[in-house]
Computed example of a mutant assay.
Amino acid sequence: MSGIHLRHWPGDADRPALALHPMMGSGAVFDRMAAALDGRLDLRGFDMPGHGKSGPWEGAEVDFHTAVTRVAASMIERPLDLIGHSMGATVALRIAVAAPEAVRSLTLIEPVLFAAAPDPAQDALDARLAELLATGEDQEAARVFLSAWGLPGMRVGPEAAAQIRLVAETGPTLREDAARILRPGGLEAIDAPVLLIQGAESPPVIGAIAEVLAARLSDVGRAVVPGASHMLPLTHAAEVAGLVGVNLDRA
């Protein structure tokens, strides 16, 4: 796919790693975390289409989640440490299920795989977003979304209004598991150490998802960051980096 902006946080060449950012963000979400890791990883990433410095999403023969997964997979040349946040964490998990041999360690920060743990509050939020998008109120839809999943007081500009349509496009994968990430035997086939990180102040569905995933993973740890909510790689970068380091030690 053309127009993808690549990112690189140089470090130990013997520990290649890939970081996958959330929707309505960019690879810059990991700047502080990468700095706190202090070169321990040779970390790479990219801005998803329609995000950050990448070109706009113009559609493809596949859905948005699959397109992002293909970009990420194309950057894997040998087993590496895979880190994902939010939607990026679901892409990381999808790759690990499809090719467990490609993953040295897997760190999932607040994976939003809602199909794992259906939640009435999330259903209500999604229904509200669908209603707003159906009436062309994209700016308000972006505001509603970010009030739940963004930073407090986050400005909702034209870029966010455009990206909210991409958020809606991920629904079949995140809500219905169209990519079959949860298929029988899939999670169980991951033999790399997995760490599930969540913020203590995040929506309850995050903990429910982590509980379901952890029950099926063979080598898994869980961590809760006090005082943090969904955007903890930005707000609690040092704590997240420390936890990533713990998982690296296990690999």
Rank of each mutant, 00 (worst) to 15 (best):
D219F: 08
I206T: 14
R15A: 14
L195R: 12
D31H: 07
R7I: 00
I76V: 15
L187E: 02
M33F: 07
G171Y: 03
G27T: 05
V194G: 00
P158C: 01
A19N: 05
R216Q: 06
T170I: 12
S218D: 12
D42C: 11
D219W: 06
M154C: 10
R222H: 05
P10D: 11
L151C: 01
A168P: 04
Q139Y: 05
G55T: 03
M1Q: 13
D14H: 13
I190Q: 06
I190W: 07
P120K: 06
S218T: 14
H51S: 08
S2I: 10
I181Y: 00
M23Y: 02
D14A: 15
A19P: 09
E110Q: 14
A178E: 07
A200F: 10
V97S: 05
D31T: 03
D177Q: 06
A142E: 01
P100N: 11
R40N: 13
M1D: 06
D219Q: 08
I83D: 03
L146E: 05
D126W: 08
N247I: 01
L182T: 03
V225I: 14
D123R: 15
S26A: 10
H230F: 00
L80S: 07
G245M: 12
T173L: 00
L43K: 05
A115M: 06
A67N: 08
L41G: 07
G227W: 11
E201M: 13
L232E: 00
H5F: 10
E159Q: 14
D38V: 11
M24N: 01
